Amino acid sequence: MVLVTHDASLTGAPMVALLVARSLAEQGDEVTVVSRRSGPLLADFAAVAPTVPELLYRVRRRLWESRVLRPVAWIVDVLAATATLARHRADLVYVNSTAASIYVHAARWLKVPVVLHVHESDANTDMFLSQARVDDLEGVELVACSPQVERDLMARTGRPSGGVHLLLSVPDADRLRAMACEDGGAPPAGDPLMVGATGSVGHRKGTDLWLQVARIVQASHPAHFVWVGELGDPAMAVPTPGVDFTGPTSNPYPAMAWFDIATLPSRDDPFPLVVVESMLLGKPVVAFDVGSVRDQVGEGGILVPPEDVEAFAAAVLHLLTDESARAALGVAARERAERLFSSTAFTHRLREILGAPTGPTGQEPRIAARQAR
């Protein structure tokens, strides 16, 4: 099997790709990982399975930067993907993210079964499929990271219930907890309670909304706001008294373990892994009610209407000023995450999916049958 990850960053979809690779490798499957971009997870992938970079990445990115040359860029992308699959003699292609959906063309040309694991909202799925010129998903096994993405894919393809597989994104809990215990320093003694967010700074992640929340909260109660993650849009990452941006880090979990409240201010996030990671660390969550975040948080946090900054700030203030409520939600968050989002359940469900007939018509041979030959 060839597993394609669109990059090797410390973000949700690549982290799930790592868990897919580990789950399969531990059960004896032969997996080769292809990463379209470099990143800090490459070493983790390589520790699990043979890992290779995609061919001619820098050349192809330069071609995509020119509007005139984009048709050429698409052709080179497809050829590079096809050469990669042919080189590694793929008998199944697991495309982890629509950002790598150019591999659907390559798999079809080589007549290799293909699984497309969708982590994106419907708008982003549409954007990536259009860019890759994947006009239809006929014959492609579809995996959704959340109930909302499952519904979106069913509406997009017209497939009935069961025609799209649901595989909830989960963290590797053991890895997360081990990394959270690594020495990452400590917050300054005597600091006020810490309100944290994790992710790449930017509009989609709602960094500007989070800064508005910080101003409202700090006007009436002391709190230290910390954003952990890459400075995707540096113009938004403006530190002020009581507000810090850590920048990129190879291990965000020690900082996340310091949070008293974990926040998700995203405008658009289908099933953000960081929510479950925060819950596993016993953190109460305050989030906008977007995507399938409601299915994650449950009784482990507080949801408010999308982009309602005042309601978000009120929820944060409530938890800052009510220690018993903060503690109770933290316990509920950890228990819910351990019960519903375990890597064991993920592996079991993944095996069910890969043992199912490929394609909505069920006409292709099963994965297990191919491996037995």
Score class of each variant (00 low, 15 high):
154 M>A: 14
320 L>E: 10
75 I>M: 11
149 V>G: 09
116 L>E: 02
188 P>H: 11
76 V>P: 04
107 A>G: 13
9 S>G: 07
250 S>R: 15
4 V>Q: 06
180 A>N: 05
55 L>R: 15
272 P>E: 05
4 V>T: 10
249 T>N: 04
330 G>T: 08
313 A>N: 00
91 D>W: 13
329 L>E: 11
100 A>R: 08
2 V>Q: 10
176 L>A: 01
355 G>D: 14
309 V>G: 00
240 T>A: 14
248 P>C: 02
14 P>T: 07
231 L>P: 03
42 L>Q: 12
107 A>W: 01
341 F>Q: 05
253 Y>E: 11
170 V>C: 06
227 W>Y: 14
113 P>C: 05
325 A>I: 04
195 V>Y: 03
62 R>P: 08
121 S>Q: 09
84 T>A: 15
205 K>Q: 08
310 E>F: 01
56 L>H: 08
341 F>L: 13
130 S>K: 15
94 Y>K: 05
150 E>P: 00
361 T>L: 15
253 Y>F: 15
102 I>H: 04
232 G>F: 12
175 R>V: 13
27 Q>R: 15
53 P>M: 14
13 A>V: 01
236 M>A: 06
4 V>N: 05
102 I>L: 07
30 E>P: 07
302 I>Y: 01
196 G>N: 10
127 M>H: 09
254 P>C: 14
135 D>C: 07
330 G>L: 04
248 P>Q: 10
121 S>Y: 09
112 V>S: 05
233 D>W: 13
198 T>M: 09
26 E>M: 08
263 T>P: 00
110 L>I: 07
256 M>R: 08
365 P>R: 15
4 V>D: 11
353 I>T: 10
286 V>F: 08
371 Q>K: 04
76 V>R: 08
26 E>V: 11
120 E>Y: 06
151 R>K: 14
195 V>A: 10
212 Q>V: 00
135 D>Q: 13
63 L>K: 10
61 R>P: 01
256 M>L: 14
109 W>K: 03
44 D>S: 14
114 V>C: 13
258 W>Q: 03
234 P>H: 12
78 V>H: 09
158 G>H: 03
158 G>L: 06
334 R>C: 01
129 L>V: 09
81 A>M: 10
46 A>F: 06
271 F>M: 13
211 L>D: 01
167 L>K: 00
179 M>C: 02
288 F>H: 01
131 Q>R: 15
128 F>N: 14
139 G>A: 05
42 L>K: 07
263 T>D: 00
84 T>F: 09
182 E>S: 12
126 D>F: 02
305 P>T: 01
139 G>L: 12
151 R>H: 05
16 V>H: 02
158 G>M: 08
238 V>E: 12
340 L>Q: 06
120 E>A: 11
